[in-house]
Nucleic acid binder design. Structure first.
Length: 203
DNA sequence: CGCGTTTGACCAGCGC
DNA sequence: GCGCTGGTCAAACGCG
């Protein structure tokens, strides 16, 4: 599948509304790198979109840097980063997004996703795809759309917290990251939980 | 046969 | 209250 293609491109940024809680959380654990089992590692100092260009290590690829940190969701229902794009939708907390340069929308991030919807949003000429984690009881959702300004980029946002390890047979390194009992590293779940906690998400 | 995708319909929140 | 918009459902379909 697109697994092998997914991450060989440069990951430009993540965003987002949760900048405050996430950065705060990251700062609290500034000694520990942020570790994304399914994606790689992000250094806390790089995690603040507003502060510095960041680095993003994709699993199986080299650490790639992106010149300009780019966060596009300010949590108030508007998109930032370049021209502000108003959006009428609500801005649920606890969501993390990435802007990734990739030819394929669907990337193998270690989890199994089931598509449950596709919609043409008005703010973008591109379709938005909705995915949900296949594991029962795990309500994590994910939406994928192409960047309006740069069709070469894919915007992926995760919503929710995985309450299970990554399905096996995917990546040994990813599994290792999850099986670590009390790792000093951060996982997606941690970030989500932190963001959700400090901003009263439904999760 | 099991699981994922497709697709239009449906629903809920928000603005006017 | 109505219509727009984004998000979700679910039945049919496709594929391994």
């Amino acid at each position: 599948m697109a697994a092998s293609l997914g991450f060989n491109s440069s990951h430009e940024a993540y965003y987002y509304q949760a900048a405050d809680p996430l950065v705060a959380a990251a700062a609290a654990h500034s000694a520990a790198p942020l570790s994304f089992p399914e994606l790689g590692a992000v250094r806390p100092s790089d995690y603040s979109p507003a502060l510095s260009p960041g680095y993003f290590a994709a699993a199986g690829s080299e650490m790639s840097s992106f010149p300009t940190s780019y966060y596009y969701y300010n949590g108030a229902g508007a998109y930032d980063g370049g021209a502000a794009r108003g959006v009428s939708g609500r801005a649920p907390a606890g969501r993390i997004g990435f802007r990734t340069r990739s030819e394929v929308e669907v990337m193998d991030d270690g989890f199994r996703w089931r598509k449950y919807g596709k919609k043409a949003v008005k703010s973008s000429p591109n379709l938005r795809n909705y995915y949900r984690c296949s594991v029962e009881g795990c309500g994590v959702k994910k939406r994928v759309e192409r960047d309006r300004d740069d069709p070469r980029y894919v915007i992926t946002s995760y919503d929710g917290v995985h309450n299970h390890p990554t399905p096996g047979s995917h990546g040994a390194s990813r599994e290792a990251a999850y099986s670590a009992p009390a790792p000093p590293t951060w996982t997606w779940s941690d970030l989500h939980a932190a963001a959700a906690h400090s901003s009263e998400s439904s999760y």
